[in-house]
Write a protein that binds this DNA or RNA. Sequence first.
DNA 1: GCCAACGTTGGC
DNA 2: GCCAACGTTGGC
Length: 139
Amino acid sequence: MRYWLFKSEPSTWSWEDQVAKGAVGEEWNGVRNYQARNFMRDMAVGDRGFFYHTQSEKAVVGTVEVIAKAHPDSTSDDDRWECVDIKALDPVKTPVTLEQIKADERLSGMVLVNNSRLSVQPVTNVEWRIICDLAGLTG
DNA sequence: GCCAACGTTGGC
DNA sequence: GCCAACGTTGGC
């Protein structure tokens, strides 16, 4: 199983919106960036990810599971764009902020820190473990 | 609200 | 195939 991170503007699609979708989940549509799309193509059903809020919050707020592999994005007529479906897994006990992540030298290699504009990104097993600990999750 | 960083587009 | 212009993202 691999780990990922999904960024979303809470004013557009929030963790609460994701939770409201329940086990049915929702497609992670709207991505129009090749790198992000390619990561979604690499995802397998059962992979897990962090759900990250941008804008004012800037924190990991929950975990999600990939429930459908990459398929055409229903919000685009252009068949270049694909997306996976994800469902909410667990809310964090404590949000892990970007500030915390930047301050933790163990996390200095994270894509979140080094390429702030990439909206779908891989997370290493070690990074997953550390952030789960900070978030109060068993992981 | 600003702006740096980055990705994409299109003219050549 | 290069690169200038432009648009977007997201932290501050």
